[in-house]
Design a binder for these strands. Structure first.
Lengths: 246, 246
DNA sequence: CGTAAACTTGAGAAATTTCAACCTGCGTGG
DNA sequence: CCACGCAGGTTGAAATTTCTCAAGTTTACG
């Protein structure tokens, strides 16, 4: 009870874990390595020999572009795997970098194979990669079909739910360490335009964003504005676990 | 040799199949069902009880949007699975529809589980879902960071390679049945703008698109223009298998 | 306090959308 | 066999969104 391990908190959403499953996961995730902000974890073209997992902080998947910009294709929050798949694909087709200081755990391929012997854990890991894929699809919809301010709002809603799942957001707020340039790389917009969009959202009373903290003033209202429906996150109890303000 | 089964041709790119593996796949893929164009195969919210596979024609994953438009997030070419994952996620977070008349094969969950007993087949199926995910990431880059005409060019390059893999494209051309409205739903642009972009590509001598057939006049040149690098498709021999003109 | 990174602002240029009209090919029913 | 009808494609012009460039301003932190 009162679980604080983000990996376990997340995987509970995908499968009914046993106490022993949880024990294994807890053992695995002890003693990660501290990494600073803006540090590359894995580079495109590499073929890593272990699986990595974010236990604290915020990281991202990205591709570096010929013109010097980069495209961020996913955020990795605590409990997210960097490269659960790479053993099969051979080489990374994208890079992973920290956005804030992070705790990264390395798990040997051997250990992963052991985990996969346990049916519920195998199912939970499968679930987690399928949810990652589902998020990619929703991002595609987001970028293709919504106005910039809606895209931004949608991203906020998604982060709220995902951080709630691992106990890092209250019911309507969470620490927000992303720079406007990073948001620009994510949504494929200009930093200047990101800036104006944020001001718009503030003026319209949707959010308060200051001191590296984001507060959503009326969550259902913002979700409505962003056309956000949480089904694509495949949570069992949507946002059921929220941080208690103490 | 001289394989013509698109599923087998594709999976060979992901793992070294044995003759028996191929036999199994051939048996599976016999006797699909013919379906017309613009027919929904699976709808968002459903929980299908079998896995479906496209054996001929072109289909797509899409989400219907509140404003009546739809967002196409993936094309399914012969050899592609519709829902290899759904047993774990519970319900579809998107729909699948044909774009042209298609042959669709249904495979029972039981049969899939049997396939997964064979290590190389399991690996090949894993590989195929990971490649699907990789394609989603590249589409995200495409929509976010490239000019409209480059996006279009990139899409053409990807389709060329993917259709070559299953023997449905020559070294520089393939049948092209997509409407401009469908392209618009894919790239998140307006049909009007798609029209102008296509004219641009024609004027610039990149492509000939008529009579439902696309010819790329200089493939390396178009790839360069689109910043297309095929690594994300994780093919063993990039575009090695091409249709012989007879 | 000084410096660099992050954020903000303004104005003009470019890309894309919107709306509305008009072609064109092609299959079907008369 | 022809004419009608319609889906798909094309065009023009104005409105809107987003970008670019260039110059401040603020904030974090050594």
């Amino acid at each position: 009870m009162n679980e604080r391990n983000p990996l376990i908190m997340k995987l509970e959403q995908g499968a009914a874990l046993s106490d022993e499953d949880r024990q294994r996961l807890r053992a695995l995730t002890a003693g990660g390595k501290e990494v600073g902000a803006d540090v590359d974890i894995i580079l495109e073209g590499e073929a890593p020999n272990a699986v990595r997992l974010v236990m604290s902080g915020l990281a991202c998947r990205y591709k570096a572009l010929p013109n010097g910009r980069r495209s961020i294709m996913a955020y990795l929050v605590p409990g997210d795997f960097c490269d659960l798949h790479i053993a099969i694909l051979g080489e990374m087709d994208h890079s992973i970098s920290t956005l804030t200081p992070c705790t990264i755990v390395e798990i040997s391929t051997q250990t992963v194979l052991e985990l996969l012997q346990r049916p519920m854990l195998a199912r939970a890991l499968w679930w987690s990669t399928l949810v990652d894929e589902s998020i990619l699809r929703e991002w595609l919809v987001n970028m293709g079909q919504r106005a910039a301010s809606q895209q931004m709002a949608h991203l906020f809603c998604e982060l709220l739910i995902r951080l709630q799942t691992v106990g890092l957001a209250t019911e309507n707020s969470f620490p927000f360490l992303l720079t406007q340039a990073e948001l620009a790389d994510t949504l494929g917009l200009t930093p200047v335009h990101i800036n104006r969009v944020l001001q718009q959202l503030r003026e319209d009373g949707f959010i308060v964003l200051k001191n590296h903290y984001l507060l959503i003033k009326d969550v259902p209202n913002l979700m409505d504005y962003a056309q956000f429906t949480p089904n694509y996150l495949h949570r069992r109890n949507n946002g059921g676990v929220t941080l208690k303000i103490t």
